[in-house]
Simulated assay, not measured.
Amino acid sequence: MKLRHERRSSYQKYAAGVISLSVALLIMGGCASSGPRPDAEITRASTLIDQSERAGSRNYAAFDLVNAKKKLKEAKKMEKEGNFRKARYLAKEAGVDAELATAKTQTAKAKEAEEQLKKSNQVLEKEINSGQ
């Protein structure tokens, strides 16, 4: 009877140890899977959004700029909730959306400049041709 009790006690200790180890590994795994804080990604996205606004994206690529701002806001929310992986992902997406808005803005401004040059050339050609 004593031997049976000792076996059960040893088994219970072993089971408790395995469970404790499993819980510890799960906790460590959960922390590790989340990774470091997404401070750099959020700062970069915020900077890219500011640059895009200064470039005039509100007038040329408002949809992409708004998307970038929404994703950045959601990234900050995820960071506060401790979901660093999702926050990092959203911050990177926000940065890409801001870069897209800037690129679209620059393209639109370049097209406007091209149109102005074409008009100026047409005026000059008319003046040259009328003088002959």
Rank of each mutant, 00 (worst) to 15 (best):
C31F: 14
V23L: 10
A101H: 04
A40H: 09
T107Y: 07
K13V: 12
D97Q: 07
E99P: 01
V96N: 06
A40S: 09
K126H: 11
R58L: 01
A15E: 08
G29M: 11
A62M: 08
Q122R: 15
R8M: 06
A24Y: 02
Q12M: 01
A62K: 13
D50Y: 09
S52M: 01
T47S: 13
Q12K: 04
R44Q: 09
M1H: 07
G82T: 06
V18T: 08
Y11C: 01
E99Y: 01
A110D: 08
G131H: 15
V66Q: 06
A55T: 02
K73Y: 11
V18G: 00
E125Q: 15
K109H: 04
E99K: 05
A98S: 08
A113N: 11
E125M: 14
T107I: 12
K118H: 12
R54G: 03
L72Y: 02
A55Q: 03
A32G: 01
A32F: 07
M28Y: 08
T105W: 07
K69Y: 03
G35T: 02
N59P: 00
S46N: 10
Q106K: 15
A55G: 08
I49G: 07
A16F: 01
G131F: 10
E115A: 14
K92N: 13
Y14C: 08
K13D: 11
T102F: 02
E114V: 13
S10W: 07
A113G: 03
A16S: 11
R7C: 02
G131T: 14
V66K: 11
T102Y: 04
L3F: 07
R4P: 03
K13S: 09
S57H: 04
A113H: 05
I19E: 11
Q122L: 14
D97M: 04
L25G: 03
K109R: 13
E93Q: 15
E112G: 05
S120E: 14
S33K: 03
K2D: 10
Y14T: 06
E115P: 04
R8L: 12
T47N: 06
L25Y: 12
A110G: 00
E125A: 15
I42G: 01
G131L: 13
K69V: 11
K2L: 12
G82V: 05
M78P: 00
Q122P: 02
R88L: 01
D39V: 14
K92A: 05
K69S: 06
Q116D: 09
E74R: 14
E127A: 10
K118C: 01
V18Y: 06
S33N: 07
M78Q: 12
Y14K: 14
A108D: 04
S57K: 02
L90V: 11
R4C: 09
G17T: 02
Y89F: 12
A94C: 02
I128R: 15
L3W: 08
A101W: 02
K119Q: 14
S57P: 06
Y11T: 00
E41L: 07
I128V: 13
K77F: 06
T47H: 07
F63S: 09
D50A: 15
K111C: 00
G29W: 08
Y14V: 09
K76M: 09
R85M: 05
T105F: 05
Q12E: 06
L65F: 02
Y89S: 14
S9M: 07
A113C: 05
A108P: 03
I128L: 15
G131S: 14
G30T: 05
K77S: 10
D39I: 13
I42F: 07
Q51F: 01
R88W: 02
K73N: 13
T105N: 05
L3N: 04
Q116A: 14
N121A: 15
